[in-house]
């Protein structure tokens, strides 16, 4: 019946509004939930959320080896042209030619921290770091080379 539907509608509207108010009321009374970081004051004890993205880095192990094969998938995935993969050819001990990276150039000033390159990388060579204090006085310092000088590709990564 029309009138029953009408009353039901009003009732469900009131109920859903009250549910919303209960949530904000909970936050209002529970100050422990506050997520604001008072940044410069708590610089040493900063507690960043797990998914916070600061910049793209390439982890190296203790033998100065990384996992990048130079496949340029990250370069293709990046919407801003932030990454430039410069490849070279290594001569393997058996005398075969093998593609490897010379430099992986990363323009921090162009990066929007969208994470697409990390997702695109087939060998998990790059990750997002949580460092975020990036201001410098010279713009050229923002162009970074992600692989360490003299680094090699890890054994077993194709």
């Amino acid at each position: 019946m029309f009138i029953v539907k009408y009353i039901k509608e009003v009732w469900s509207a009131i109920k859903s509004l009250l549910i919303g108010m209960r949530r904000t009321g909970y936050y209002f009374t529970h100050h422990k939930e506050i997520i604001t970081q008072q940044y410069p004051d708590n610089r040493d004890t900063l507690n960043l959320p797990e998914r916070f993205k600061g910049e793209v880095v390439m982890p190296h192990d203790e033998k100065n080896e990384h996992r990048c094969t130079g496949c340029t998938a990250c370069e293709l995935a990046c919407p801003n042209g932030t990454i430039k993969v410069i490849t070279k050819f290594d001569i393997s001990p058996e005398g075969k030619k093998k593609k490897a990276i010379d430099k992986l150039v990363y323009h921090l000033e162009l990066c929007t921290m969208c994470n697409l390159c990390v997702i695109a990388c087939p060998s998990d060579a790059i990750v997002m770091a949580q460092t975020f204090e990036h201001s410098v006085f010279d713009r050229s310092k923002l162009t970074k080379i992600l692989n360490n000088p003299g680094s090699k590709i890890m054994d077993g990564v194709e």
Partner: peptide
């Protein structure tokens, strides 16, 4: 203040 606390801010 009220808005901040309701939005889990300071």
């Amino acid at each position: 203040k009220v808005s901040a606390w309701m939005q889990i801010r300071l």
